[in-house]
Nucleic acid binder design. Structure first.
Length: 257
DNA sequence: GCGACAG
DNA sequence: ATCTTGTCGC
């Protein structure tokens, strides 16, 4: 059951978030990051959680791995999870990251060579990156209004100034620090918001995300999104468990392919 | 106090 | 996140 966020939880999250930020590496650490076309990078992963409409506590967590630069899906892991933490803007990672860490661990167990780089949500990228020590990049479809960032007229004007694919402008907070970058990833007038996750600098992150875009949403995240939604759709059609009188017995519905 | 707020 | 069909355009 997902309840409102008690103040005690929020302050604990704030402390943990501050501690975790100390572990974030904001520079490039991989050899392929120095190459003009990222030569040497062979796999790019994406993660996502899709929720059931009326149910705040059940979701499908997905992790996909794509070839790079071909962007063909090589690996897919979808499974239902019981979400317990509430959604709080600015603290999304505490709700979603535990399931993503598990997915990464399964990946590393099954296909050790596949976990090269992950595209995740904006703030999720730092958490997941530090906890797994994998290179991560944050990608959001909408602007998180924090530290003075707002969808105001200035912001809309800056978006209009993004004329060509690859054009960017920095997201500078009131504190003066650059929190991320807005990127026109394709012909859509709506930009992507890119942030540093772990072990990738912002400039490299923007170039890399751009190179993963067939459409506005980078292919790894788009595939994770599509596949987790499809998994949920199938769940809705599977038989409902009816309470029985006899001894309880776990039955697993077969959901193959 | 009210509204705004990634997913 | 999710509720939702067609539709206009390249």
């Amino acid at each position: 059951m997902t309840g409102p966020p008690p103040a005690a939880i929020l302050s604990r999250w704030a402390r943990e978030q501050a501690r975790l930020k100390g572990g974030v590496v904001r520079e490039d650490t991989e050899e392929w990051q120095k190459e003009p076309s990222f030569a040497g990078l062979e796999r790019v992963g994406g993660v996502d959680l899709s929720y059931i409409k009326g149910d705040d506590s059940r979701a499908c967590a997905s992790l996909v791995v794509l070839s790079y630069p071909g962007l063909e899906v090589l690996y897919e892991d979808c499974r239902m999870v019981a979400v317990s933490a509430p959604y709080v803007a600015g603290f999304l990672a505490f709700r979603e990251v535990p399931f993503l860490v598990e997915a990464v661990q399964r990946l590393q167990q099954e296909e050790p060579s596949y976990s090269a780089l992950l595209l995740t949500g904006f703030g999720v990228a730092c958490h997941l990156g530090v906890l797994t020590d994998l290179p991560c990049i944050g990608v959001a479809k909408n602007l998180l209004q924090v530290d003075g960032l707002a969808r105001d007229e200035l912001h809309r004007e800056q978006i209009r100034s993004l004329q060509r694919e690859g054009d960017t402008f920095p997201l500078t907070g009131t504190s003066g620090s650059v929190l991320g970058m807005a990127l026109r990833s394709c012909n859509s007038s709506k930009p992507l918001y890119i942030s540093v996750g772990h072990r990738v600098c912002l400039e490299t992150a923007v170039r890399l995300v751009q190179s993963c875009c067939r459409y506005r949403i980078p292919e790894p995240i788009r595939q994770a999104d599509i596949r987790s939604r499809e998994y949920i759709r199938k769940q809705m059609c599977s038989p409902v468990k009816v309470p029985s009188s006899g001894p309880e017995r776990e039955e697993k519905a077969e959901v193959d392919d």
